[in-house]
Design a protein around this nucleic acid. Structure first.
Lengths: 113, 113
DNA sequence: GCAAACCATGGACCATTGTCAACGGTATAT
DNA sequence: ATATACCGTTGACAATGGTCCATGGTTTGC
């Protein structure tokens, strides 16, 4: 699919998709037509970009997402991969705790209004 | 207390504390001694800065923290204050959801390694 | 009384995460 | 065939959240 369709399907802008591609989060292929320079984005990127959005919203940095994808995409030692992912999960659990504490504090303040 | 002590007590750097002060998250008083220009930071800032750290770790922006503190610090209409804080709580709940989903995804990927 | 440690201010600098504008080429619908 | 909408590339721009440095003054320990 073309970048505009992908943007439509994911709710991201073309610029953001290109930004992610520049940063190695996704890859596109050269289109079949020799007449233009339009890139072809595989359908499965819709799902992948949804994951990326979710992770970004969860506060995971672009470079960390890349590291995790690189680990998961099977190119490296599975044992190393597990470490990378497990560590990020631990960080996310910690973030979650911070959020919960913050919510608790705000709620308590709210009660004192 | 002096800024160095506050930094020590909170684990933040002096620069960061000054940054937060510039951005209205905290206030200091002019020191009693006329001989120097050292500022005096009230003890309660230790707690306040801990909250700030927690909120920052939870992904709350500096300007949002300021808005919430302004709301809580009683200078404005309590009804408005409640709205501001409640809205931020809702955002944090949403963040938490994103994090949980992301954790779930990563865990599932981990299982497939 | 002197060095080392502290303080305030100002401004420069940095990475991250996009976003936008300009340019020239291509597709598509009428 | 022509207007409109799309595409790729490049490079500039912006906001956020700090961090660092230089300068000049102050305090403290020895």
């Amino acid at each position: 699919m073309k970048i505009g369709e992908l943007a439509e399907a994911t709710g991201l802008t073309r610029d953001t998709i290109r930004f992610y591609e520049r940063n190695g989060l996704i890859k596109s292929e050269a289109g079949k037509q020799a007449t233009n320079s339009y890139r072809d984005y595989p359908e499965e990127l819709v799902f992948r970009l949804n994951i990326i959005q979710q992770a970004r919203d969860a506060g995971v940095s672009v470079s960390d997402i890349k590291a995790i994808f690189d680990a998961l995409d099977g190119s490296c030692d599975p044992a190393d991969a597990k470490l990378v992912v497990a560590e990020k999960i631990a960080e996310l659990e910690a973030s979650k705790q911070q959020i919960e504490s913050t919510i608790a504090f705000f709620k308590q303040q709210l009660a004192n209004l």
